[in-house]
């Protein structure tokens, strides 16, 4: 029982980190970046290459992966989404799906479809509390999630750039009138989201160490669900949604059915959206005219 709880929170933390990327990009650019899941996969491969081919130690490998994904995020935004800033949201959505396929197929060309065994980057001992074993990967994952959450909250609440980000997410035109560079802010959001995706990729592959070009697809969809579940656009919502989703998935697998666990996850989403369409922590804006 406790083991399931720990596994659920750990998996949920990975979803939460991915969901943050979805929710931030949605909040600022008002688009669903369906290529986000594949950035996770790229992050996994980058860390894999750095350790297995170049023989780098864990921390530089992770930093390398974050760096590559951050740049990748900015490039994707510039090349694929920026030209569509004033296009219909359907065009942007389809482009995002296109980018997703592009990344998957590029990975397929480079690394082939054979699964790679992801190296163990977390070389800490597992923790035993009584009869329960807590894996070091789970601890690192939860710790990373908490650090990211606190860091992002401080960033958006306290820094000038973070406040500008919130202003842009609410009203781009008014933000420009204040002197805020909206394009720069959007780039920054993609950079942060993609950097987080890299971290999520490393954590995910550490917990489930098979790496394939499609590795990011399912966690990407789940994390998107988590973001909607928690209330898309809301940072605490993404965290809450991610963790709940991880718990539901693990408990569903353990007590109901392994095969149906994904169905249960999405069923919960549907119920939440029927009862509370804005998601758990979604903002309802009251506007005065």
């Amino acid at each position: 029982m406790l083991t399931y709880l720990i596994n659920g929170i750990s998996l949920g933390s990975v979803y939460a980190i991915i969901a943050l990327g979805y929710t931030m990009v949605y909040g600022i650019a008002k688009m669903l970046n369906f290529a986000h899941g594949d950035v996770i996969m790229v992050g996994g491969y980058m860390a894999f290459c750095a350790t297995s081919y170049l023989g780098w130690p864990a921390i530089p490998s992770v930093l390398f992966s974050v760096l590559v994904c951050t740049v990748l995020g900015i490039v994707i935004e510039r090349l694929a989404y920026k030209p569509l800033r004033n296009a219909s949201s359907l065009a942007v959505l389809i482009t995002a799906i296109g980018v997703s396929y592009f990344l998957q197929n590029t990975a397929l060309l480079i690394w082939s479809s054979n699964p790679k065994a992801f190296p163990n980057l977390v070389s800490l001992p597992n923790l035993s509390v009584g009869s329960i074993q807590i894996s070091s990967v789970a601890m690192v994952t939860v710790a990373a999630c908490i650090i990211i959450m606190v860091g992002l909250t401080l960033f958006t609440d306290k820094t000038k750039m973070g406040k500008a980000m919130r202003a842009v997410s609410e009203d781009k035109g008014a933000a420009q009138l204040m002197g805020i560079n909206v394009n720069g802010t959007i780039s920054l959001t993609f950079a942060i989201g993609s950097g987080l995706a890299a971290i999520a990729g490393v954590l995910l592959c550490s917990a489930y160490p098979t790496l394939m070009p499609t590795t990011g697809a399912m966690p990407g969809i789940k994390a998107f669900t988590a973001a909607v579940f928690g209330g898309i656009g809301s940072i605490p919502g993404a965290m809450l949604g991610g963790i709940l989703l991880g718990l539901i998935e693990i408990f569903g697998k353990a007590y109901i059915s392994t095969q149906l666990s994904d169905a249960i996850v999405f069923a919960v989403l549907i119920i939440v959206l029927i009862v509370k369409p804005t998601g758990l922590l979604g903002k309802k804006v009251n506007e005065k005219v």
Partner: peptide
């Protein structure tokens, strides 16, 4: 100062003023 005010409804009063001085 635009039509319909367009203040940032989800930011605090003080944060709105800070945004005004962004430049």
């Amino acid at each position: 100062c635009p039509e319909g005010r367009r203040i940032f409804l989800q930011l605090t009063v003080q944060e709105n003023l800070e945004m005004g001085a962004y430049s």
